[in-house]
Design a binder for these strands. Structure first.
Lengths: 196, 196
DNA sequence: TCAATGTCCAACTAAACAGTTGGACATTGA
DNA sequence: TCAATGTCCAACTGTTTAGTTGGACATTGA
């Protein structure tokens, strides 16, 4: 029998993504991750160090995924409304990232793993927004960084506090029609925020 | 010596508020709450049932506090921008609630303790916003519930994912000037969202 | 072929955890 | 005054936790 090294790593990370997104760093147990992956937990420590480093690895992977899935080019091409809509769609289809980011924000204070690289990633976004402002595609009297931040907020907030969303709109979160309605609201709000 | 019943309850709830806000339902231990309150943990179980019920009691108290501190009347009186600014100010001065709400949103799926009463509370907000829309003080072509939701999002998002805020704006969260800048951005964004 | 190294696992350890118990002592009301 | 009840606490229980260990077996390279 050949080694299953790569597959074992992959299965651990996949199981960890689901567990961490659902229960957070504190609520997740390494036993459950290992059981879900069908792998002995000793592997987890050999491959990833410990629970916290595994959390970082998982989050880093998910950040790479959204960067690939929602390219910044669509901002200039289709406008900020559609860009916000795409971010919303991504979160609706793949709810791991937004939950992981929130667990991280709540759990770790001070500098966060991979912060320099991630800051650079956000800087690209801000630069693109600033360029769009200079070309008068976006409102000019709001700082680009704030605009990026608000657009992400509009799209992600629904998934961060679903209980508040439910109590406010009186609708079920799993309802497909409601999901479409929320997307439309996000698109329209983003446009409104950024109209020149 | 007289009983300290009320004081004991108060100290437990105060300690629990701080611990739950910092570490969340899973990350908090009843031993630490009791130690912080300077009270035996058996009191916690007698007075509040268990850890989860104590979390509910704490969150419920904090919701009552913000409802009292940011009255809805200021919406019509001073406009939506200043209303959003007041929500921001409240969160900046008292960061417990926003963190508790997020812990709750991430931790509990499905119905949440006290949901009917809280839904009613949000309904008042929506009704007030809808009234403002009819009086042409707010934009009319966006559902009132969505508008409320977005205004809360703009004000609260900074405190929910401070690491993202820091990476985007490149500034320290504790910086007073940066805090003022963020408040101004929230006010301006809320106005933009709701201009008729 | 064989020593070195990597994979994998069952079983383990020490600590932390939520929740309980039994009893000392204070308060109340009849 | 005294039985009933409430407050408070140290010490406890049984379980779950993150992380480790020792050893069986697979793979590699010289």
């Amino acid at each position: 029998m050949a080694w299953q090294t790569a597959e074992t790593r992959r299965r651990l990370k996949e199981a960890a993504t689901e567990e961490f997104a659902e229960f957070g760093p504190h609520g997740t147990t390494v036993d459950r991750i290992a059981a879900r992956a069908g792998v002995n937990k000793e592997r987890l420590y050999k491959y990833f160090g410990n629970k916290e480093q595994l959390f970082s690895a998982v989050l880093s992977d998910e950040l790479a995924k959204i960067a690939a899935a929602v390219p910044l080019e669509s901002l200039l091409a289709e406008g900020i409304g559609e860009y916000a809509g795409q971010v919303f769609d991504y979160h609706a289809a793949n709810p791991y990232l937004v939950r992981l980011l929130h667990w991280e924000g709540l759990t770790f204070q001070g500098e966060v793993p991979g912060e320099p690289g991630r800051t650079e990633y956000y800087r690209h976004k801000v630069t693109a927004f600033a360029a769009a402002q200079r070309e008068k595609v976006l409102v000019g009297d709001m700082e680009a960084a704030d605009l990026v931040f608000f657009v992400i907020a509009l799209a992600a907030w629904w998934f961060a506090v679903p209980q508040v969303a439910r109590m406010l709109t009186g609708e079920n979160t799993d309802d497909e029609a409601e999901c479409g309605r929320r997307r439309a609201a996000v698109v329209s709000a983003a446009r409104r925020l950024a109209q020149p």
